[in-house]
């Protein structure tokens, strides 16, 4: 792999793989240092008190360890994957309701993620993050409110102003390849 400059996201994915394959505590500690404070901030903004947010953050990070084998870097960045774990914990702990999840795509031995796809997806995720930084303040606040706040579903307009089409197409391709590998 010869990408150096934009390697940050790529590194997170490699760390998750080390956690999965080698039960590598140093890799886990690095992920923890970066993501735990972010997860905690997310949970507090979503309405959790400090103590509950701390407890849930530790549970979210423990889930990362336990489910590291489920992470597919051709379909999500590490931040996105951790976001979904934190979101599910939020629904559990704050809203106290069950969380129906889509049926998983089973992993076959052939379904090892394609490195080129992994790279593209991670780059698309970085582009998305940059696009979000450039959004007008008002637009950005609205998105934050939808994701971190208390907008009810009927208030969500879903007009993000973000170029989500490309990232969607990348994920779509990864899914197609996975389906194909499963025969």
């Amino acid at each position: 792999m010869n990408v150096v400059v934009e390697a940050e996201e790529q590194d997170w994915a490699a760390l998750v793989r080390r956690v999965d394959r080698d039960k590598d505590k140093a890799a886990f500690a690095a992920l923890f240092r970066h993501f735990a404070p972010r997860v905690k901030a997310f949970l507090m903004k979503s309405g959790a008190g400090e103590a509950l947010a701390e407890e849930c953050t530790q549970e979210v990070m423990a889930t990362l360890w336990q489910k590291a084998h489920m992470f597919d870097p051709s379909r999500a960045s590490v931040s996105t994957w951790i976001y979904t774990i934190a979101r599910n914990r939020k629904i559990d702990a704050l809203r106290r309701q069950r969380r129906p999840e889509p049926e998983d795509l089973p992993w076959g031995p052939e379904a090892e993620p394609d490195q080129a796809e992994v790279m593209t997806l991670q780059q698309e995720s970085e582009k998305l993050a940059k696009a979000m930084k450039k959004l007008p303040e008002k637009q950005r606040k609205l998105i934050e409110k939808a994701y971190f706040g208390d907008l009810s579903h009927s208030e969500i307009a879903a007009e993000t102003g973000l170029p989500l089409g490309t990232i969607k197409s990348r994920i779509r391709l990864a899914l197609e390849r996975l389906r194909h590998a499963m025969g």
Partner: peptide
């Protein structure tokens, strides 16, 4: 599923921003 993935990526990008991280 792919469209959902793109909306979840927005959540991932939001969580990744360091500005307001809270010490554990």
């Amino acid at each position: 599923r792919a469209r959902l993935g793109s909306f979840e990526a927005v959540g991932g990008a939001l969580i990744d921003e360091a500005a307001d991280a809270v010490d554990v």
